[in-house]
Design a protein around this nucleic acid. Structure first.
Length: 116
DNA sequence: AATGTGACATACC
DNA sequence: TGGTATGCCACAT
């Protein structure tokens, strides 16, 4: 089942969107990092789910900057096309090879660190 | 209130 | 190297 309008202000989803929008261009973050920053810690799955809801949001959410802990574009299948996510990232100067962000560790933007 | 779900993370086989 | 299992938690029905 999929949520319809899940971006009410004050909700967990809204917080996720806000953090994702704060990710600088050319940088990436992880589900776990966002979850940790939001304090929910272990609910990294919810972040991914929020991204799913982001698809229905009325504002742009750079979901392509959110990858799993390996820098892998696990969510690419949720974009319009299989290559869209990678193209968006490369457009920002991020090198993506084999569905994985190259130099991922140095490109990582951890909100719990950067926004601290 | 109970159940199902998920774009994760980790552990185990 | 890769599949399966489990923990985890917010949200929809």
């Amino acid at each position: 089942m999929k949520p319809k309008q899940v971006f009410d202000r004050g909700s967990f989803f809204a917080d996720v969107f806000e953090v994702v929008r704060l990710v600088p261009q050319g940088r990436v973050t992880t589900y776990g990092a966002i979850a940790k920053y939001l304090g929910t810690g272990k609910s990294s799955r919810m972040v991914g789910w929020a991204m799913n809801a982001a698809h229905t949001a009325h504002f742009h959410v750079p979901a392509q900057r959110v990858v799993n802990r390996n820098g892998m574009l696990t969510g690419k299948h949720h974009f319009a096309t299989n290559t869209l996510m990678q193209e968006l990232l490369e457009k920002e100067g991020i090198v993506v090879k084999n569905d994985t962000v190259q130099n991922f560790k140095s490109l990582l933007w951890d909100p719990s660190v950067e926004l601290l």
